[in-house]
């Protein structure tokens, strides 16, 4: 009896000793499954984010207060120079405004001549960013809007400056937006006045990279990069950034929308059908 007791105790001690190794193996095995983007795991992930979004939102409140106080203090010190800058900007915007009025009137006249029907109103939802994975591995954010708000997979996340990313997972209360800076992000684009077709790729850094650029294409620093609309995921004509440097064959683009300056995003459904359904993705 006593022997049995000591044997059990010894086995228990051994299991306890090897438990971390067993959990290390389990974690490794899970990583193997996790990489394959198993639909069950995606469902578990969206359920977990749905459950934690209210908590994250509450936790973010004091952080937002601190941020607001910090911003207010910074604004007080820079108010004079900011005022000067805004005056200059206002003057140039007035000139642009006149141009816009003129172009708008021309556009209206030409549209009437061609009997052109403009696209209908786009459905959009404005949502707060409640979590940012700050990924050394991937770049995505969690926004507080889900299927109950009419969000669906493939909706684009825009800031006032340009495209931030697109919705890749949707829960009932929250959605995950894959940023254009993520290493898996690939967007068909047009570059510069010649409209050179290329692919804009993320690499987890703050800059984006142009790949698949045709040989001999004329691209210069300062060229505007816009979506070409070829994938059927991003509509044509959305501004993404400008070419900031060219080092050999590496062409770097500074995105207009910066994640750190965005607190809210506009999730827009452009009604495009370029995304493959999940079932077909798995098959392929």
């Amino acid at each position: 009896m006593e022997n049995k007791f000591f044997r059990l105790k010894r086995i228990k001690a051994q299991v306890k000793q090897f438990a971390p190794v067993l959990f290390l193996i389990a974690a490794l095995a899970l990583t193997g499954i996790g990489v394959s983007n198993n639909p069950v795991l995606i469902r578990v992930r969206t359920a977990a984010t749905d459950a934690f979004v209210p908590i994250l939102s509450v936790l973010y409140t004091p952080v937002r207060w601190v941020k607001d106080i910090g911003n207010s203090v910074t604004e007080i010190f820079s108010i004079r120079s900011e005022n000067e800058r805004l005056k200059e900007e206002n003057a140039s915007l007035r000139l642009l405004q006149n141009k816009v009025y003129q172009l708008s009137s021309d556009n209206q006249k030409l549209s009437q001549l061609l009997n052109y029907k403009p696209d209908g109103e786009k459905h959009f939802v404005t949502a707060r960013i409640v979590a940012d994975n700050g990924g050394s591995f991937s770049k995505s954010v969690l926004v507080q809007a889900g299927t109950v708000d009419g969000i669906s997979k493939g909706d684009l996340a825009l800031t006032e400056l340009g495209v931030l990313g697109r919705v890749i997972e949707v829960g009932s209360l929250a959605s995950r937006v894959l940023l254009i800076t993520d290493y898996t992000s690939r967007i068909p684009v047009k570059v510069g006045e010649d409209g050179v077709l290329a692919i804009l790729s993320g690499d987890n850094s703050v800059l984006l990279k142009l790949i698949a650029v045709p040989e001999g294409a004329q691209i210069n620093v300062g060229d505007l990069v816009m979506t070409s609309g070829h994938s059927g995921v991003y509509p044509a004509g959305l501004s993404l950034g400008t070419v900031v440097s060219m080092e050999g064959s590496n062409i770097y683009v500074q995105p207009f929308s910066e994640r750190d300056k965005a607190e809210f995003v506009r999730l827009v459904d452009f009604g495009l059908d370029g995304l493959l359904p999940d079932s077909r993705c798995r098959e392929e």
Binding site: A26, L30, V35, N133, F137
Partner: peptide, 16 residues
Amino acid sequence: DLLLSVPFGLNAFFFV
């Protein structure tokens, strides 16, 4: 891993 949307088990592995 669930909250960061990284492959399942990645953070778990390094935590353990």
